[in-house]
Design a protein around this nucleic acid. Structure first.
Length: 893
RNA sequence: GGGCGUAUAGCUCAGUGGUAGAGCACUAUGUUGACAUCGUAGGGGUCGCAAGUUCAAUCCUUGCUACGCCCACCA
């Protein structure tokens, strides 16, 4: 079949993808092959393909296609994540648009609606991954709320509970008042907010006075509203200002609540007034201070409901007027009320004219916690939640990374990993949502908790008590932490589990190192006793062309599907791979994607050329027998490229791998080999060219699956042997040094001739004669063996092995030979002299520099022998060249 | 406050203890048995700054500067 003149990606992508998928080629039956396994970071069902997915999945597909071609039983597990908060938000938002809301439904009815949504629109991203060409095993597509996955989640929860690694605790959590759920530390992001720092008087009770005569203590806060639940004031025991009032009491001005002044290390004499108001129920530090002061968590006063509206505290002392109001409204009221009561200490500042003025608060930039999903300020809130003992579970992963059982690539991330894991806090895993894995815990009337895999088992444990199941669900990351094994059928001991767990590699963005990767390590070790994978590859972010993070609000988002439409999936994939050097973010560069589209076209045309000259698919894995230098040379170049590619893949250097095949195709195969064989399509050359092209298609396939598969089919009739399941090259040949030297000499000669012609203004096509008196046998042989290259590419009508006639001529060097090309009447002597003089200067400069080094005794004595040897050889070469050039100059007079 | 990373050609980035490379852009050009989404030739860099180690530093060490990211309770 004849190939079209230009390559049209859109015309072949869909065709090949469905061919691969419907024929089960993403996971051919290879029961006897070595397994190779990657699990795909499950995208949220709510998601659509963004540029980060394109990078992440391209890298994985490059690896999995590479391993599949190498004959492994390659499995790329794919699926989606139920994404508790995100998905519930999507469905609730849709309800809002219809003036409807979640609470209009029963829990069951709402969850049904989410499932409905999932079935209708949850698969967007899986279609989009197909457009990128990703060769995942769709036949076993997973979902984190599949029944077997749920069983795994429940088992893990129960097992960890029984081992004491999951427990229920009352402590402060990060509460999202918008989503009305607890979230984990990782889901909190700190943002800088402009706020105020207010100073207040807290009067001492019972007429007590401080040593300095004051009858109050000054406290400062950025959150005045919490004073409604203040339970003490802390001062430092070493602070002389307050030594006399420790254990004395305060009367809080707004609530009238009496509480103690306590000594606590938390109070820093250097900060503010040195005295801190303590609200144990609404501040993480204060919680600890409160506990040290002997206040039990259960007795800590609470002043907020789930939406952070003010509610009456247990002691009933919060004034009526604040109740039911928003925390930020109450903040303003409290400042005003304290001010009216004379309890606000104003802050002195200067107005724009430099005049001193009083203001209520000192302006401050405050590090404020926000929920990463809800986007509102997090409220520390005292609740009962389920916790995972992360410190215990982190021990095995820490050891695994320390010992090298898990290799993190690039290594620089290890320190970050250690830093986080060594300081890990209990992981709050319960969420007050409806969409998710419901926690397998049942509460009895008497407060007892029963954790079991089923209600029946829980009831059996509880006897005849009445049980009600915990309403809460688990953090989404709890279930995705099981992804490496639960997707394979665990806890059943399936063949898949046996063969594919542990997995071989995990590829993920560094942004989910803590959320996901670290937790897979913890759960993997805790539940299976094995690390989920021996290798973790972390890639960076794809940034906008301006270097900023892409975001919808900035409007700088680049849509990968748009790039695929415009340049083809192959081009986008190649871009991602070629730009992926370890440890650096990728800046989006559409021109470069375009360049790789051009590369695909270049290959396309090279294949078209081969096809039109009767070069067809090869029939052997091993390189064909070759006798000509050009053919031996290109086989050697394949061997070298393959070596570079394999090494790069072993090192996970995607950029090096992509560049190796790119330069082989363009620079060696297209620019030289094809040019050199033009006009000489003998059987050997056709066999070699066909073989080389096949090797190119195989080596390039992991990066550019579509164009290579299309060409593979076009070049040979091999319908039952598609490229995707072909064999990785095994040339069974080596580099032929003599052939390489011969072709390198030709390339140098042709290059030097072209340069000289260009500089002397000689038409590139002009045919010239050359003289080479007293050639070495070697050089003469090369010239005689390659008449085509000499005539057609070097454009020399003849090379005479005799002295050149007198007259103007240019001198062309190649290796240690020097060709004289007479230019009588073609060019004036002055131009050639100038050209030679310039070249001579360069040679002399090089020679002189090397000479200087060689004349330095310490260099000769101390440098490595190879370095000295190389300097000597280079010096000899440049000196000889300089000599030839000055001889040529002399000849020109 | 801690930790990490990055500074190399106009732009985006590789790289090495022995005087620097790619892609794009730029200049000139269009002879060639596929390819103008192409070919050929060329210009362009005191490798952020300073000191140190070394026969030799863009590369190793230290300091500085700039930018970026992550973690952390300064009330």
């Amino acid at each position: 079949m004849a190939l079209d003149k230009t390559f049209d990606p859109a015309a072949i992508e869909a065709k090949w993808y469905s061919h691969w998928e419907t024929n089960g080629l993403f996971r051919p039956e290879r029961p006897d092959a070595t397994p190779y396994t990657i699990v795909n970071p499950p995208p949220n069902v709510t998601g659509s393909l963004h540029i980060g997915h394109a990078l992440d999945n391209t890298l994985q597909d490059v690896v999995i296609r590479y391993e599949r071609l190498r004959g492994k039983d390659a499995l790329w597990v794919v699926g989606t994540d139920h994404a508790g908060i995100a998905t519930q938000m999507v469905v609730e938002r849709q309800m809002e648009a219809r003036h409807d809301k979640r609470t209009n439904y029963s829990r069951e009815a709402f969850v049904d609606k989410v499932w409905e949504w999932k079935h209708e629109s949850g698969g967007t991203i899986t279609c989009q991954l197909r457009r990128l060409g990703c060769s995942m095993d769709w036949s076993r597509e997973q979902f984190t709320m599949d029944p077997h996955f749920t069983r795994a989640v429940v088992k893990v929860f129960v097992d960890l509970y029984n081992k004491g690694l999951i427990y229920r605790d009352k402590r402060l959590v990060n509460w999202d008042p918008k989503l009305k759920t607890a979230i984990s530390d990782l889901e909190v992001e700190t943002r800088e907010i402009k706020g105020g720092f207010w100073h207040f008087k807290y009067p001492l009770a019972d007429g007590v006075k401080r040593d300095d005569g004051l009858d109050y203590i000054e406290v400062a806060t950025t959150r005045p509203e919490t004073m409604l639940a203040d339970m003490c004031v802390a001062v430092n025991a070493d602070d002389p200002r307050y030594a006399s009032v420790i254990d004395k009491e305060i009367v809080q001005p707004l609530t009238g609540r009496r509480f103690r002044i306590v000594a606590d290390e938390h109070a820093d004499p250097e900060l503010g007034s040195g005295a801190v108001k303590i609200t144990p129920g609404h501040d993480f530090n204060d919680f600890e201070v409160g506990k040290r002061a002997g206040i039990k968590p259960a007795d800590m006063l609470n002043m907020f409901d789930a939406e952070a509206l003010v509610v009456q505290a247990a002691d009933g002392l919060i004034p009526e007027k604040y109740l039911g109001l928003d925390r930020f409204v109450v903040r303003d009221m409290i400042v005003a009320d304290m001010k009216a009561a004379g309890m606000l200490i104003p802050h002195m500042t200067k107005d724009k004219d430099g005049e001193p003025v009083e203001v209520d608060a000192e302006p401050r930039t405050i590090q404020t916690p926000f929920g990463d999903r809800g986007g509102v300020v997090i409220e520390p809130w005292l609740t009962d939640q389920w916790y995972v003992n992360a410190a215990e579970l982190s021990k095995a992963p820490l050891e695994a990374v320390r010992s090298g059982a898990i290799e993190i690539v690039p290594k620089s991330w290890e320190k970050t990993f250690f830093n986080w894991m060594e300081n890990i806090q209990p992981w709050c895993v319960s969420r007050q949502l409806w969409w998710g894995h419901r926690i397998p815990a049942w509460f009895a009337d008497d407060g007892e908790i029963y954790v079991a895999e089923t209600e029946e088992e829980a009831q059996a444990l509880a006897g005849n008590k009445t049980l009600s199941r915990d309403e809460d669900v688990l953090d989404t990351w709890f279930s995705s932490a099981l992804w490496p094994f639960a997707t394979l059928g665990w806890p059943e001991d399936t063949t898949l589990v046996q063969r594919h767990y542990p997995n071989d590699l995990l590829v993920s963005g560094f942004d989910i190192l803590f959320f996901w990767d670290a937790r897979m390590m913890m759960m993997g070790q805790a539940m299976t006793g094995q690390n989920p994978w021996p290798r973790l590859y972390l890639h960076g972010l794809v940034r906008a062309p301006d270097g900023q993070k892409m975001s919808k609000s900035k409007g700088n988002v680049v849509d990968p599907l748009g790039l695929i439409d415009q340049y083809g999936a192959d081009a986008l994939r190649f871009f991602m791979a070629a730009m992926e050097s370890q440890g650096r973010d990728i800046k989006m560069d559409e021109r470069r994607v375009e360049g790789y589209r051009n590369f695909a076209t270049k290959l396309w045309n090279a294949a078209r050329f081969c096809e039109s000259n009767g070069i067809a698919a090869s029939t052997s894995i091993a390189a064909p027998k070759a006798t000509s230098a050009v053919n031996k040379w290109i086989i050697g170049e394949v061997v070298e490229t393959l070596g570079q590619l394999d090494q790069a893949m072993a090192d996970l250097r995607f950029d090096a791998a992509a560049n190796a095949i790119y330069h082989f195709v363009w620079d060696q195969f297209c620019d030289w080999y094809i040019e050199l064989i033009k006009g000489n399509f003998d059987e050997e050359t056709k066999a070699v060219a066909g073989w080389v092209l096949d090797q190119i298609l195989v080596m390039l396939h992991p990066f550019m699956p579509f164009v290579t598969e299309e060409l593979w089919g076009a070049l040979g009739d091999r319908p039952h042997y598609p490229l995707i399941t072909a064999s990785w090259p095994d040339p069974q040949a080596s580099v032929d040094a003599e052939a390489k030297a011969e072709v390198d000499w030709l390339i140098a000669l042709i290059g030097n001739l072209r340069t000289a012609k260009n500089e002397l203004g000689i038409a590139p096509g002009a045919k010239l004669e050359a003289y080479l008196p007293e050639p070495s046998a070697q050089t003469r042989g090369v010239i005689e063996r390659n008449p085509g290259a000499i005539e057609r590419i070097a454009r020399l009508s003849a090379v005479r092995f005799e002295a050149a006639p007198a007259g103007a001529a240019m001198q062309i060097g190649a290796g240690d030979a020097s060709l004289i090309v007479p230019l009588e009447g073609v060019i004036d002597i002055a131009s050639e002299k100038a050209r030679l003089a310039k070249a001579l200067e360069v040679s002399q400069k090089e020679a002189k520099s090397l000479e200087g080094r060689l004349n330095n005794p310490s260099f000769v004595e101390k440098a490595k022998p190879e370095a000295v040897e190389k300097a000597r050889a280079d010096h000899a070469m440049h000196a000889a060249e300089a000599e030839r050039l000055s001889a040529a100059l002399a000849r020109l007079g």
